[in-house]
Amino acid sequence: MTAATERSAVVEWSEPDGVVPRGTLVVLPGRGERAGVYARLGRRVSADGYRVLVLPAPTDDPSQTTERVRAVLADAGSGPHPRVLVGSDTGALFAAGLVAEGLAGVDALVLVGLPGSLPPGPVGWAAELDARTACPVHRDVLDEQVRRGALAEPVPAGWEAAAVPELITVPVLGLHGTADTVASLDAARAWYARLGVAELVSLVGGRHDALNDQSHRTAAATVVLFLERLRAGLPEIAHVELAQARPDPAWAEDHGGFG
Rank of each mutant, 00 (worst) to 15 (best):
G206M: 08
V170N: 02
L203M: 15
A162F: 05
A152H: 12
L200A: 07
L175I: 04
E199K: 09
L167T: 13
V170R: 03
Y192W: 15
T169G: 11
A190E: 15
R189A: 14
A179R: 11
I168K: 09
T178P: 06
A190Y: 08
R207Y: 09
R194S: 11
L200Q: 07
A188F: 06
H176K: 10
G196F: 10
V155N: 07
A193H: 12
N212H: 11
A179P: 08
P154K: 12
D180V: 06
G205P: 12
A198W: 01
P154R: 10
S202Q: 14
T169M: 12
A179Y: 09
D186H: 07
S202F: 04
H176E: 06
D186Y: 02
H208I: 08
L175H: 07
V164F: 06
A157D: 14
V164A: 12
L185C: 10
P171G: 09
D209T: 14
E153A: 09
A179W: 09
V172F: 05
V197F: 09
A183F: 06
L211D: 02
G206I: 02
W159D: 02
A161D: 02
P165K: 10
A152F: 01
V197D: 15
P165T: 05
L195Y: 03
G206H: 06
E153M: 13
P171M: 03
A188N: 00
L203S: 11
Y192D: 04
G206F: 08
